[in-house]
Design a binder for these strands. Structure first.
Length: 593
RNA sequence: GGGGACGUAGCUCAAUUGGUUAGAGUACCGGACUGUCGAUCCGGUGGUUGCGGGUUCGAGUCCCGUCGUCCUCGCCA
């Protein structure tokens, strides 16, 4: 650390090589150990901790001042670096070989007794941590995470700079395009009654930049979505956003492969074999029931359609006949871990959270037979067939869901993740990176019975699907790709439509008429007519990447000032009341229920 | 909007079936101590059990409502 007016070194850098030097340290009082004749203070800053020693040679003034120190006081200490006496070194501290014999102490600023101490063992409740975020951010773990975040964005910027990408900022005050998520709106004072929308992503701008000839664009962009929060979702979040011209899927995926490999190498000291594995969306849904499969463990979904079609068991048979699916998973060796009550809980879980009608289960007995109250509905050969298909071995727990394709996916994915966590099927330090590609172009729109864009309406179909867009929309696959890390969607992108005619066909399929398209994205449609190059890109969720790379279980711990689940900031009190004058200027009358 | 967990001292938690004056660790305050590093030892302060209502002879404990934090479904890429 470079010296400043108030300090010569940080609290983390002094060691035996500095012995004898006169130094000045600044920092916060971490702990204080008063032995009357001699007194120790651990001084902390974000670089580390250094032990200050006050003894008779420090003089009565310094000793007295040291005795008056309390937790989190900010102090400046001047003294000599000295080796610690034999047997008093501290191997747990980077600076544990030395200590500072303080000759002069300055209290730069006292502190109130903090509501919790950054060094304390138990973590305070999250509401308290958020209210006193500045104290929480003093904790070593938070500092470590924010440092990792800094290193990650630094690597990203360097990487893309080396590849010739140009960092260009796009507006935060934009136009609402009522696709996708709910917008955050900002009222215009100059144009009363009209509103800006904060960007859900810089999507349209970056496409315009491609048309403008900036063929490699990158930005670390703040995005906003007014939807309900989750452990991995905040209303404002940060994306690494990029777009490239004259590319196809492999080009974008390849560039991100290189980035991910570099991140893994520099942040995790891990070499990733490239290219990262890819799987189609259809395969992911079939094998894992989810478009972002967690591949740190197996327990893949097993199809039992043939068994269901032949059996008399009403639950299976009626689903099979109605075109639904009968699928299951095998929790290896878990039969003993789940009592009848435990299985009832799993049943309630799939019913409540995913709308499954029920859960059929079997425990595999020592002799290999399948046992459960449901077993009486099957004859022996059929039970044996189920066992064979599910690779049943004594001690296994078989869980089967019979329902629509969608419900079997959701329920079995939920069970798979839950069981894997409970049975510790993977090493928490493990990381799995992969791509899911070829997403469907369209998903059935429940509201109007038509089609909705799976990704966004500018997504290009695969070349081989262009001719059947109108005839078989359900079978059309998009040039879309998601980066999946540990079962979490870390990012996603597409190759865009650069041809105005194709764009209009897709709009028509989505039920977006000419007029609506013109009003919402007329500027993009115009731009597409002025020499739009083929282009595509991707956005990576930086907060989520930090969460995954630092092994945090929620995104808030990766953001300096996050919002609560109800989207409030407990430190600042946002969102808050505003002066009525501000509202008058905006022509807004609040209507509180 | 639905389901769930939690809310007790500044902080982290305990308190048997509803039953005496709600405890412990830590922090804080005071004292002792010349080599500690989660210092130790002695003493002390600290409580509207989130808030409101109800049941009961009696409520931290049971019921209803409400507020807050978190997890989750819907929602959201």
């Amino acid at each position: 650390m470079n010296p400043t007016s108030l300090r010569t070194h940080s609290c983390g850098e002094l060691n035996e090589t500095n012995i004898g030097q006169e130094v000045t340290l600044c920092g916060w009082v971490d702990t204080l150990r008063d032995h009357s004749g001699v007194l120790f203070v651990d001084l902390r800053d974000r670089y580390g901790r250094t032990q200050l020693v006050f003894g008779p040679e420090s003089g009565p003034e310094s000793l007295g001042k040291a005795r008056s120190l309390r937790s989190e006081y900010v102090v400046q200490a001047i003294g000599k670096v000295a080796p610690r006496p034999e047997g008093t070194t501290n191997p747990k501290l980077a600076t544990g070989q030395i200590e500072i014999r303080v000759s002069r102490l300055v209290v730069l600023n006292p502190s109130l007794t903090p509501p919790f101490q950054p060094g304390q063992k138990e973590l305070p409740g999250e509401d308290l941590r958020l209210k006193y975020r500045y104290l929480d951010l003093r904790r070593a773990e938070m500092q470590k995470t924010l440092m990792l975040r800094h290193r990650m964005t630094k690597i990203m910027r360097d990487y893309f700079d080396e590849l010739g990408f140009v960092d260009i900022e796009t507006p935060v005050l934009g136009r609402s395009t009522p696709e996708g998520a709910r917008d955050y709106l900002v009222p215009s004072r100059v144009q009363p009654g009209t509103f800006y929308a904060l960007p859900q992503s810089p999507q349209l701008y970056k496409q315009i930049l491609m048309i403008a000839g900036y063929d490699r664009y990158v930005q670390i962009a703040r995005c906003f979505r007014d939807e309900d929060l989750r452990a991995d979702r905040q209303p404002e979040f940060t994306q690494l956003d990029l777009e490239m011209a004259f590319v196809d899927v492999d080009d974008v995926v390849g560039v991100v492969d290189g980035l991910v490999a570099r991140l893994a190498r520099e942040l995790l000291s891990r070499d990733l074999p490239l290219p990262l594995p890819r799987m189609t969306y259809d395969e992911a849904m079939e094998r894992f029931g989810h478009d972002a499969p967690d591949q740190r463990f197996g327990m893949e979904l097993i199809d039992l359609a043939e068994v269901a079609a032949r059996c008399e068991f009403r639950v299976f048979r009626s689903i099979a006949d109605a075109g639904g699916r009968v699928r299951g998973i095998n929790a290896k060796g878990a039969a003993g871990r789940y009592s009848r009550k435990g299985i009832d809980e799993l049943t309630a879980y799939v019913q409540q959270d995913f709308g499954a009608k029920g859960l059929v289960w079997f425990k595999v007995e020592p002799d290999g037979t399948l046992a459960s109250p449901t077993a009486k509905n099957f004859d022996a050969p059929l039970l044996a067939e189920i066992g064979r298909r599910m690779d049943a071995a004594p001690g296994d727990l078989l869980l089967i869901v019979a329902d629509s394709f969608e419900v079997t996916c959701k329920a079995l994915n939920g069970l798979r993740k839950r069981l894997a966590a409970e049975l510790k099927l993977y090493d928490p330090g493990d990381m799995h990176f992969s791509w899911v590609v070829e997403f469907p172009m369209f998903a059935p729109d429940e509201e109007d019975g038509g089609w909705a864009a799976m990704h966004h309406p500018f997504t290009s179909p695969r070349a081989e699907d262009v001719d059947r867009l109108e005839s078989e929309p359900a079978k059309c696959r998009a040039k879309a790709y998601d980066l999946v890390i540990n079962g979490c969607e870390a990012g996603g992108g597409t190759i865009r439509i650069h041809d105005q005619k194709l764009q209009h066909r897709v709009f028509r399929l989505l039920g977006i008429d000419e007029e609506t398209a013109r009003v919402r994205f007329g500027f993009l449609l115009d731009a597409l007519q002025f020499g739009a190059p083929p282009h595509g890109g991707i956005a990576l969720g930086i907060d989520r990447m930090v969460m995954l790379f630092s092994r945090m279980s929620n995104i808030r711990d990766c953001i300096a000032f996050p919002k609560t689940q109800r989207a409030t900031d407990l430190m600042t009190g946002a969102p808050g009341e505003v002066d009525p004058k501000q509202l008058r200027e905006l022509g807004i009358t609040p209507n509180r229920q």
